[in-house]
């Protein structure tokens, strides 16, 4: 366990210091600023307009930061072989996986924390506080970034190039959001094979739409957030365990 903390620190440094992570945060700032400007263009629904766009920015950060941070690390680790200088040290493969996961997720949490503070500050400026959805949305975003961070580690260890990793990650996220809708669409289909395919995709992929509490008609209850946390931790555990199993076999 003594080497894990330095590994997390190293991976977090790689994840946070790369330009992509910084650009994403800048994008979130721009989105929040745009949300503020749009309130002037939507009299009567200023609060709604601001929060809808600001929350969308938070969820985007929760998804995009782990993926892009993981991609940036992938380029260093496997394309440029910096992983060699880490694995020849007294670092175990499970420890490496753990460190990589927390580095990537840590970068996402840094971005999310800063973005949440910004949204809160802008809401204060707009006198749009208190906001009953805020805590739920922020908690859901942090939990979603855990799942995406773990999945991005698994994808990185399975794929051979960072482009493939990026595409696969993007595909998982897209399908993860679409699963309930697709499932509902094929459930009424007369085609048994299509229903089976729909059910398989539905149960195999994470249901990322469950994290979109910003879309709810009323704030998510405490028990929903608790169950969401259990769901996120279970998916994170599954992805990390699978990633470790893969990485133990992978030659670098």
């Amino acid at each position: 366990m003594g080497i894990r903390a330095p590994l997390v620190r190293y991976m977090a440094a790689l994840a946070v210091r790369n330009r992509l992570t910084g650009l994403l945060f800048l994008f979130a700032v721009v989105l929040s600023g745009t949300a503020l400007i749009l309130t002037w263009l939507t009299p009567g629904t200023e609060r709604r307009t601001f929060y809808d766009l600001a929350y969308l920015g938070l969820e985007f950060l929760a998804v995009a930061t782990p993926i892009l941070a993981s991609t940036a690390i992938h380029v260093l680790e496997f394309d440029q072989r910096t992983v060699w200088l880490v694995l020849v040290r007294p670092v175990t493969r499970p420890g490496y996986t753990w460190g990589r996961f927390w580095g990537v997720t840590g970068a996402a949490w840094v971005n999310l924390s800063l973005a949440s503070l910004l949204v809160g500050a802008l809401a204060l400026l707009l006198r749009a506080l208190p906001e009953p959805w805020f805590v739920g949305v922020v908690v859901a975003a942090f939990l979603e970034s855990l799942v995406i961070g773990a999945l991005s580690c698994l994808v990185a260890f399975v794929t051979t190039s960072f482009v493939t990793a990026l595409v696969v990650n993007g595909g998982i996220v897209l399908l993860g959001y679409l699963t309930p809708t697709l499932h509902a669409a094929v459930a009424r289909s007369g085609n048994a094979a299509l229903r089976l395919a729909g059910d398989t995709v539905y149960w195999v992929l994470p249901h990322l739409a469950d994290f979109s509490v910003r879309e709810f008609t009323r704030p998510a209850e405490g028990w929903y957030l608790t169950l969401l946390a259990i769901y996120a931790l279970a998916w994170t555990g599954a992805a990390l365990a699978a990633a470790t199993a893969v990485f133990l076999k992978r030659e670098v």
């Binding site: 330095p6 190293y10 440094a13 790689l14 790369n18 260093l76 072989r81 910096t82 200088l85 670092v91």
Partner: peptide, 19 residues
């Protein structure tokens, strides 16, 4: 050997040393 270019020499050696 490829070293992460965004780091300083001191920072990188500290990371490797800790590891």
């Amino acid at each position: 050997p490829y070293l992460p270019q965004m780091m300083t020499a001191r920072g990188l050696l500290r990371h490797y040393g800790r590891m």
